[in-house]
């Protein structure tokens, strides 16, 4: 199921993750204003994606597993989106 030399791949992946962690910390030194959170989340998501795909073997799983991996993210989005919509559109009625 794994590629030719999995240990080497894992090592590369680990190095990539370390590099991305460094970028996260480094990027936090600068102030991008409103973009601070999106940038942090973007890098975190790349890291998370790499971990899921390679370390967790999502790459090799069937479509059912993909659905169960992604659907909760959608629900999480709903939870945040709806409750935030409520809280930030409460003008005096």
């Amino acid at each position: 199921m794994a590629s030719a030399n999995p240990y080497k791949t894992y090592l590369n992946i680990w190095l990539l993750l370390m590099f991305l962690t460094f970028i996260t910390v480094y990027a936090a030194e600068f102030d991008f204003g409103a973009l601070n959170v999106p940038i942090a989340l973007l890098i975190a998501s790349v890291k998370a994606g790499v971990v899921a795909l390679h370390f967790m073997h999502l790459k090799y799983e069937d479509s059912m597993t993909w659905i169960f991996a992604i659907y909760p993210l959608f629900l999480l989005f709903l939870l945040i989106a709806f409750s935030a919509t409520d809280i930030f559109t409460r003008v005096a009625n």
């Binding site: 799983e61 597993t65 909760p72 999480l76 409750s83």
Partner: peptide, 29 residues
């Protein structure tokens, strides 16, 4: 077993989801 575990991970993610939602809302507030 793997499919079951992924389902369980989905529940774990949503368990933390409540915390992430609270974070998002109160951070904006």
């Amino acid at each position: 077993a793997k499919l079951g575990m992924w389902l369980f991970l989905a529940t774990e993610l949503l368990l933390f989801g409540g915390l992430f939602a609270a974070y998002a809302i109160f951070r904006a507030k």
